[in-house]
Nucleic acid binder design. Structure first.
Lengths: 124, 124, 124, 124
DNA sequence: GTGGTCTAGACCACG
DNA sequence: GTGGTCTAGACCACT
């Protein structure tokens, strides 16, 4: 598990934590049943407030990624992998839809759009 | 010119105004030298505070889209069209790059990515 | 007499008119007793409001540069040349004082300051 | 940190605040990473509206002098010292250029100009 | 009429 | 505690 947060970013710290954990679940770095660090441990590691890590865990629990059991800790849930994958797919589709919208707004044809995608794909 | 704002949106009202005007500049609805409605007139039309419309105009001026002169009003600047177009293109490229990143994260091939793009393009 | 105004400048138009006329008096383009164009004529030439030219003339009269006689027009006053010269000298001194202030703030020595002045003088 | 504002001045209060903070950065009174007083605290101290201090901080952020993060406060940025110094130098050069322009307009020689500078330098 | 500055409040999000 | 957004007024300068 690998969480890096940036104080200078404009996305809230708790969101950054949420995204990092979701990413690790998609990547397979975190698997079903794995234990997450306690909110206090994580808060210390990241030098942030306990409130902040707590909020992140609450969001992840609300979305079904993790399950928290009193006195035992937080665990990666069964459905988390499927959830995370669906989440990333819909994010990708939304990005593509955004690009399509703008390309039409700019008067570009479909082949012009795919050419740009092609170029970008080779670059990175 | 056509500005529609939503109070329930989570993007601030002044941002919505900024985006609408930028969009109208890209679309050619607003051209170089055109006068924008006064901050007070626009505020009445949209039923928002004068300060909100003023903030939108200040941002647009800071980005070089418009020029504001005391006692005269606000005007679409010369470089606005170029600026707006560049802005939209880079936004589209960023969307595509995001989609590419996620597709790789999910282990999709390039042809799988373009198939999704193709499907989405026909749908909307 | 040569008045050029800029709508995009942030100095008010009436100030620009005042400065242009003061400058022409210093330069000798306007001499004691010369007639100035009427406020209406000047307003037409410059494509500005009559109120604006009127304000400029009022300021010039208040400072003693011109004299306005009902039905005859506005004339360059006797003391205008002396006035204008003094005005420019004090403006120059103020600029030098500003530069001195900043040079001290930056920790520059007197010789460093004069070196910069020397360089700038040769450049322009 | 030392901010003094004048209500009777014709420069807006928020500009005065901006200038004071820029000056303190040049002087080294404020250094990279230092926390600025919160906009509310500063507003109380100066007996001005929160919006006025906020506007000052927004301008400083736009110019790159400070960084503001929600819930954390405003901090002096890395590049602030360089920025501030460059800013002051170009301001000083502009003052000198203005003085040179006027001296030529008045028909003064270079030595007459430096004599005036010399006199002024000793006076203050 | 226009924008520029300022006030004295309010509610929300973040830590 | 912090800043971010917004309101509903006010007075002034410029055209």
């Amino acid at each position: 598990m690998n969480i890096i947060i940036s104080n200078s970013s404009d996305t809230p710290i708790y969101s950054q934590i949420v995204q990092c954990i979701q990413r690790d679940i998609v990547n397979g770095v975190l698997s079903e049943g794995d234990v997450l660090p306690s909110i206090r441990t994580l808060a210390k590691e990241l030098s942030v407030s306990v409130i902040t890590t707590k909020k992140a865990y609450e969001i992840l629990e609300g979305q079904g990624y993790i399950e928290t059991h009193q006195g035992k800790g937080s665990f990666v849930s069964k459905k988390s992998v499927t959830l995370a994958r669906e989440h990333r797919i819909s994010a990708m589709e939304q990005s593509l839809l955004d690009a399509i919208d703008v390309s039409r707004e700019l008067g570009l044809s479909y082949s012009e759009l795919t050419n740009i995608l092609d170029t970008l794909y080779k670059e990175v």
